[in-house]
Measured scan of single mutants.
Amino acid sequence: TELRLDINGREIKVDGADKETLKELLKLAEKNNDEKAIRIIRHLLER
């Protein structure tokens, strides 16, 4: 399955993203107070 998050109005594919990319996405999600995106990205970073 493909995991996509809508961050800042942009749909971004997050599964398969490297750790650096995920960290950047996490910063974006935190800036937007997007709890769902934050939770998902943190979960991916823990893998």
Results as ranks from 00 to 15, higher is better:
7 I>Y: 03
22 L>G: 00
1 T>A: 09
45 L>V: 06
16 G>P: 15
8 N>R: 01
34 D>H: 05
35 E>L: 08
42 R>F: 04
26 L>P: 00
22 L>M: 07
38 I>W: 02
43 H>M: 13
3 L>Y: 02
13 K>I: 14
14 V>G: 02
33 N>T: 07
7 I>E: 06
6 D>Q: 14
5 L>D: 15
34 D>V: 05
16 G>L: 14
36 K>T: 11
18 D>E: 04
15 D>F: 02
38 I>Y: 03
23 K>S: 11
34 D>E: 13
9 G>C: 01
15 D>W: 01
37 A>K: 01
46 E>A: 08
29 A>N: 00
8 N>A: 11
9 G>W: 01
7 I>W: 04
6 D>K: 13
36 K>F: 11
39 R>S: 13
33 N>I: 07
24 E>T: 10
21 T>H: 07
21 T>Q: 10
1 T>D: 15
13 K>Y: 14
13 K>T: 13
31 K>Q: 11
18 D>H: 04
32 N>P: 02
35 E>W: 07
2 E>C: 14
23 K>V: 08
28 L>V: 08
46 E>H: 06
39 R>Q: 12
4 R>W: 15
30 E>V: 08
44 L>R: 03
4 R>H: 15
38 I>H: 04
10 R>N: 13
3 L>N: 15
34 D>P: 00
43 H>D: 12
25 L>S: 01
7 I>R: 00
2 E>P: 00
21 T>V: 11
21 T>E: 08
36 K>R: 08
25 L>E: 02
42 R>A: 10
37 A>G: 03
43 H>N: 10
34 D>N: 06
36 K>E: 12
7 I>L: 08
24 E>G: 08
24 E>H: 10
25 L>C: 05
46 E>K: 04
1 T>M: 10
40 I>L: 08
13 K>C: 08
26 L>T: 01
43 H>V: 11
39 R>E: 13
13 K>W: 14
44 L>H: 14
47 R>L: 12
20 E>G: 09
29 A>E: 00
2 E>S: 05
47 R>W: 10
35 E>H: 10
43 H>G: 12
41 I>K: 00
8 N>M: 09
9 G>A: 01
27 K>D: 11
31 K>E: 13
31 K>R: 11
25 L>A: 03
6 D>F: 11
1 T>E: 15
37 A>N: 05
22 L>S: 00
45 L>F: 02
41 I>N: 00
32 N>S: 14
14 V>Q: 01
14 V>K: 00
16 G>S: 14
36 K>I: 09
34 D>K: 02
18 D>Y: 03
20 E>M: 05
32 N>Y: 15
29 A>V: 13
9 G>E: 03
47 R>D: 13
15 D>H: 05
45 L>S: 03
41 I>R: 00
15 D>I: 06
7 I>D: 05
40 I>R: 03
35 E>Q: 10
41 I>C: 02
46 E>W: 05
25 L>V: 10
31 K>G: 11
19 K>Y: 10
44 L>Q: 09
23 K>R: 12
37 A>M: 03
39 R>N: 13
30 E>N: 06
17 A>D: 14
7 I>M: 05
33 N>S: 09
2 E>N: 09
32 N>V: 14
10 R>V: 15
5 L>N: 08
41 I>A: 01
8 N>K: 01
7 I>Q: 01
